[in-house]
């Protein structure tokens, strides 16, 4: 049963950290939507949830710390974050934390949820 609202923006995030040309390109889209005060529903598929993990040694790998800005989204708008239960278990099993509170949801349940969003964008 879809639970989003007509104004909400669903962002489907598919790539793990640093896979793209810019480390923060997906975060930028989320930040723009949040600045416009649109309710956000973030769907992290597979290992893309690693973008939210809070214990990477960014300094040692000389990579930017831009990902930490995910944590600022709730200050800007209403945000709900979903990820696959198996990946959340891996993260907690490695004694890591996520920058945002994440609701476990299977891909099938996410797909049903997308129908409740006003617009959905695959990133």
């Amino acid at each position: 049963m879809p639970v989003g609202d007509a104004l909400s923006i669903g962002l489907i995030i598919r790539s793990r950290p640093y896979l793209q040309r810019s480390a923060r390109s997906q975060l930028d889209v989320a930040l723009v939507a949040a600045v416009l005060e649109l309710p956000l529903r973030l769907y992290f598929l597979g290992d893309s949830i690693l973008q939210l993990q809070n214990a990477r040694a960014l300094e040692k790998s000389s990579l930017p710390a831009g990902y930490r800005a995910w944590a600022s989204l709730p200050d800007l708008t209403e945000v709900t974050v979903f990820a696959e239960p198996s990946w959340l278990q891996r993260i907690s099993g490695a004694e890591l934390r996520t920058l945002l509170t994440v609701v476990p949801k299977t891909v099938a349940a996410m797909r049903a949820d997308w129908q409740g969003c006003g617009k959905v964008l695959v990133l």
Binding site: S22, V32, A33, L36, L38
Partner: peptide
């Protein structure tokens, strides 16, 4: 995205824009 990828002159048919425009168009 353009600034991260190339400095050459782009086709004049393309207008530089930003993610805010994209989001407003989406709405």
């Amino acid at each position: 995205s353009r600034a991260r990828r190339f400095r050459e002159q782009s086709s004049p048919a393309f207008i530089e824009s930003g993610l805010t425009d994209m989001m407003e168009l989406m709405i």
